[in-house]
Design a protein around this nucleic acid. Structure first.
Lengths: 314, 314
DNA sequence: CGGCCCGATGCTCATCTGAGCAAAGTCTGT
DNA sequence: ACAGACTTTGCTCAGATGAGCATCGGGCCG
């Protein structure tokens, strides 16, 4: 496109999109035929001079969603728009809201829903509306008695989701990670725990997030791991954790001993699930999001625009 | 609009603007008729959920230009877009470029053009392309031998505009403001100066900017005024200066003694001109821009989006 | 309970718009 | 200068769209 046409296409785009003239009128005003105007507008779009944004907290990016489904083999994807987002926290909220919306819109609604816990899940529970389902029981799928910061949030999350969905919550009364393998096995052998885990394995759908392998991890916060543990895991190739289990970029367990001390469903339980909804947002979690999608840990991904673009190779 | 329609209108807008579906297809996908889709899109636009921006350094805002013409009685207006502008300086450059474009596009091209000097005028001169006019002589309309920072810039501006336009420059060899009224009168009585001023009064068009009444003024920089002088002027109601003459919000001269010591055309010379092009941008100059437009100091205003909105009462 | 009013819905029709095509114009290499 | 390749321009026509209108339905008051 030469310089004259470039300027003309800008003038045409202004008159078309801002002044709401028809192409015919623009042609008259710029002394060109309406066909030329149409072509100039097409060029302006192609050259990226025209940016159209949907400004709304629930705005999504259907194009990216389609590409995620087609190119990454997901059953479904929800990508929230970054347009107009001022803080990282606002983005997390948008993703949580979108996940809540997705869950609410599931048909048929799940009879039993398996959930993990953490900041994201808590946000999702918060964003679910009262009566989002007509009877969904909730089961925790991984251990997690929060040991320091906000005790009971893991339980509160499951209970809140169940209560708002007119169902009951089954809690997993166990720490996320134990110090001894034997202790973990003893706990899983416990009648109550075993029953919950069985229920979890037979859930119709799963909803979970993932954590980045960094010092801000909820596992460090909760006292299950030390920052030194995290450093060792990163050294070994860990990119983050999914329901408490640390994986590498290929989605494989990084530390088998640690994994054997972690209470809850296995990653393969998620991989064989019909509906496994993962909600992840924020730049630090890009690595684990990528690993998760690549290794088939979820069938549905709810995420933000930037993460989606990263997953699709920028 | 109720909550359901709001969400629907967002979905419709996404599919229409991002996924490029037809309203018919959107209707099928959202289970509504295509007429409803059309109405939802209209609503989305009305509610401001859809933002369309033209991203280009030469992008303008025709709507604001029209309102400035209609509501502020200007013959013409050029409003450059703020979209995608990262720095204040970039905005100044856009306005300077727009002023240069406007000047280049004037038909018939002015035989004699009266110009002021300063940062903005220098930028405009820089942005004019070689051969912008086929023969335009340039006359300085106010005094201004830069005394400190960049000596000769005032002259360089006029010479550059004239040279690129295939004409000659007539310089006004005088300071902007003199210390004694008598000296000013003596200078204006000088044959050379008087001849230039006569030529300036008979120019076909004028191009000038304005300065804010603050310590960053080019008059302080050049040593014609002290910061204390500025403070006194502000105290007396000055909002800025036009061709060296300080005016209040009503466009009237603030300090008649100072004015009588200022060399150059009078403000009424500008007010009676056929074509008086003012180029102003930046938040600090809003006050003087407003005064200028309100008191008819220019027939054409070249400015930025924010200033234009301010002039139209937000 | 029935009639009335107002907003929502579905439709007709005229206009707007983009795809595709043929003619005109432009640029190359010989 | 000219033939051929390629680009640009103006046009036809079918599909997309918005304005305006008749109808429907739900709430409200008598």
């Amino acid at each position: 496109m030469d310089a004259v046409d470039e300027l003309l296409s800008i003038r045409a785009a202004e008159l078309y999109y801002e002044a709401n003239l028809t192409q015919e009128e623009i042609g008259r005003s710029l002394q060109i035929t309406r066909w030329k105007v149409g072509r100039l507008l097409t060029q302006a779009k192609e050259e990226g001079f025209v940016r159209i944004e949907i400004l709304h907290s629930r705005a999504r990016r259907p194009q990216l969603e389609r590409r995620l489904r087609d190119e990454r083999g997901l059953t479904d994807a929800v990508v929230v728009s970054r347009a107009g987002v001022r803080s990282e926290d606002e983005l997390h909220q948008r993703v949580a809201q979108a996940a809540a919306d997705y869950l609410t819109g599931l048909r048929p609604g799940p009879r039993v829903l398996g959930v993990s816990w953490g900041r994201t899940l808590s946000d999702i529970a918060h964003n679910l509306r009262e009566g989002w389902s007509s009877g969904t029981d909730v089961v925790q799928i991984n251990g997690g008695v929060s040991m320091s910061q906000r005790p009971g949030t893991a339980a509160a999350t499951a209970v809140s989701i169940a209560q708002k969905g007119g169902g009951a919550a089954a809690l997993l009364p166990s720490p996320a990670i134990l110090e001894q393998r034997a202790t973990k096995e003893a706990i899983e052998a416990d009648r109550v725990v075993a029953r919950v885990l069985d229920a979890a394995r037979s859930a119709n759908a799963y909803l979970f997030s993932a954590g980045a392998a960094d010092h801000g991890s909820v596992h460090v916060d909760s006292g299950y791991l030390t920052t030194a543990d995290i450093d060792r895991l990163v050294e070994a190739g860990a990119v983050g954790d999914v329901i408490g289990r640390y994986i590498g970029a290929d989605g494989r367990i990084v530390d088998h001993d640690l994994d054997a001390r972690t209470v809850g469903l296995s990653l393969d339980d998620l991989r064989t699930a019909d509906i496994a909804i993962a909600a992840i947002s924020g730049a630090p979690k890009r690595g684990v999001a990528s690993a998760m999608v690549a290794s088939g840990l979820c069938t549905v991904l709810v995420t933000d625009e930037s993460t989606a673009q990263h997953l699709l190779g920028e």
